[in-house]
């Protein structure tokens, strides 16, 4: 089964995944129209800044067992085994925030959602783009990511690729693991940040 895999070292912090996610979870399905919708669709993936202001795409891990599911007194959170996805039943959610308190990654938000019940806030989280996948599309965040920080693939394939990359970097150390420009920019940003700590 394919799943979304995050490769944080590839994230350049452009936040396009956030726009794509919000659009995918809008009624209109296009960015320009989605911005005008009320309630406004919000992203379910969040790009944070690391110690050196590098990007980090923070997304639901769909844990198993899931702390949010265990904390949900109303029984609104459940797991769909066929897609290994932790989901919220909007009709059962009582907006108590217990799940958000239990979530170690801070990826559950509360707001009125264009696709949820009208007039009140519920817990909103990544649904692995179930609706898109059912139509034969891949998750929106992966589709928009041009650097390969988010991929949609079999976990075994991803692991094998990573193993191969590590093995190659060890056998041919002259071949840089990171492109020179990326290393250059990262080192400059780190130096700038460290000056602030002097």
């Amino acid at each position: 089964m394919k799943q979304v895999i995050v490769h944080p070292e590839r994230c350049v912090g452009c936040m396009q995944c956030m726009l794509a996610c919000a659009t995918a979870h809008s009624r209109s399905g296009t960015l320009l129209a989605a911005c005008q919708e009320r309630p406004r669709p919000n992203p379910r993936i969040h790009v944070g800044a690391g110690r050196f202001n590098e990007g980090f795409p923070n997304r639901c891990r769909h844990c198993d067992p899931a702390p949010c599911q265990m904390a949900c007194l109303a029984g609104a959170i459940y797991r769909r085994e066929s897609t290994a996805t932790v989901l919220v039943n909007p009709d059962r959610c009582i907006n108590c925030a217990s799940c958000a308190m239990a979530c170690p990654y801070g990826v559950i938000r509360f707001h009125e959602d264009p696709l949820g019940p009208a007039g009140w806030a519920i817990a909103i989280k990544c649904d692995n783009c179930g609706a898109r996948v059912a139509k034969g599309l891949i998750p929106a965040c992966v589709e928009t990511c041009k650097t390969g920080a988010l991929t949609y693939e079999e976990m075994d394939d991803a692991m094998a690729r990573k193993t191969r990359a590590v093995a190659r970097s060890l056998s041919a150390p002259d071949r840089p693991a990171m492109p020179a420009g990326v290393v250059l920019l990262t080192s400059i940003k780190q130096a700038e940040m460290q000056l602030g700590e002097r």
């Binding site: 350049v12 452009c14 590098e54």
Partner: peptide, 13 residues
């Protein structure tokens, strides 16, 4: 604004 867009920061957009 953090993280700032890496494409733009590298001149690649």
């Amino acid at each position: 604004q953090q993280p700032q867009c890496g494409f733009c920061d590298m001149g690649l957009s």
